[in-house]
Amino acid sequence: MDASEINAITDWLIDGARSAPMPSQMMAQACERMVAAGLPLWRVGVFIRTLHPEIFGRNFIWRQGAPEVEVGTVDFEIQETPEFKRSPLSLVFNRGLEVRGNPDNLADVERFPFLLDLRQEGATDYVAMPLRFLDDTVHAMTLTTKQPGGFSDAQVAALRALTKPLTRITEIITLRRTATTLLDTYVGNRAGERIMGGQIRRGHTDTMQAVIWLSDLRGFTALSDRLPAETVVEILNHYFDCQVASIRAHGGEVLKFMGDGLLAVFPIDEYIGDANHVCARVLEAARESRCSVDALAFPIGEAIERFRFGVALHVGNILYGNIGGGNRLDFTCIGPAVNLAARLEKIAGRMGRTVVASEGFVRACGADWNELGEFPIAGFSTAQRVYGLADEAPVVMA
């Protein structure tokens, strides 16, 4: 084992592992450098808890000779599985302990059954080490070797020493990813990218052409009045699921949930001039959402609650950016086009329609529409033509 090479790896990590800008690249290079320094690694795993509404953690697995680092995720249910409860990672995460296991030792295999799988692959030693972040949360790294007799004491000591700078750079990478994830979760992907890129001052705005999607749940006020608040929240979550997946799959970004309302935008590339293509995808998302909401059945006691929603579609220029007061800002969109979409959504409700659109959207979309009439719109000098899908009949709400 070359002490100078170990020191060089430490310096490289402390300097930010600049030759490896991606997490998987950093891990691959770190492992390859450790092997070159005389540490007999066969398999290395790094397991990081995440701050994500659906994902408990991410894992990065390096294997000697593999073409790339394997990256995966696990959900929150893993904590309740027998496999996790009987694994060294459970002790690392829950108690911050370093755990070592010998695949050839019967007592170790009985305590940690997964060591039998490692023995069948030729492993001779396994160490799980805690990676403790500055906020005292514990993450983990596992190190496995095929060296006869396992790791030497000096090799384990060197690995322990390397976990310190490795923990710091892993924490930095994790914090940046967490910030990105939180922004994506709460303000949307495109808005999150702009905020991370430094667009954080009030008044930082851009003008862009986009399709605007404004929807709400029909009869929500009455629903809220007769059902417990917890049930209403659960219904809303299922209801929004019916739309968000389709919106994102067709190139849209959800900007805001407003009670039972949803505001989304589908940017149009002004240089490509793809308004027709974007509008067609938006209409497809609206049709999919309509089917999903129609199929939504929520049991309440012995009854089954069914739902309807309405969505207004309009295309126009919007002002997109930071608006607010003091140091409390909201990344949203405003403008006459948004106001028109909001008015169209109200008209959809009055007419018992699910999907309505402006004249501008219909011209760009080219699907089969029926004109529903001209309507005076507050704030607009002329009446606006409103259209409904030809394959949709109005429904009178009870």
Rank of each mutant, 00 (worst) to 15 (best):
G251A: 01
T207H: 14
S246N: 04
T221A: 08
G219V: 05
E171Q: 15
C242H: 05
S215W: 12
H204L: 04
R202M: 09
T221M: 06
L227G: 05
F220E: 05
L214V: 14
G252C: 07
G150R: 13
T174K: 10
F240K: 06
F151Y: 13
H204W: 03
D153R: 05
A158P: 06
T207D: 11
T231N: 06
F220G: 12
I235D: 13
W213G: 01
L183A: 04
D260W: 06
A158Y: 08
Q209R: 15
T205C: 15
F151K: 00
I200F: 03
L166I: 05
L183S: 09
L217A: 11
L223T: 14
D216P: 11
R190P: 01
L162W: 06
S215T: 14
E193L: 01
S215V: 06
R201V: 02
T170S: 11
L227A: 05
L262S: 03
E234N: 10
V232Q: 04
N189L: 14
Y186C: 04
S215H: 00
Y239H: 12
S215D: 04
V232S: 07
T231R: 11
Y186E: 06
R160N: 08
L227K: 00
A157K: 08
D184N: 13
A245N: 04
F151R: 00
D153Y: 06
W213H: 08
Q155Y: 09
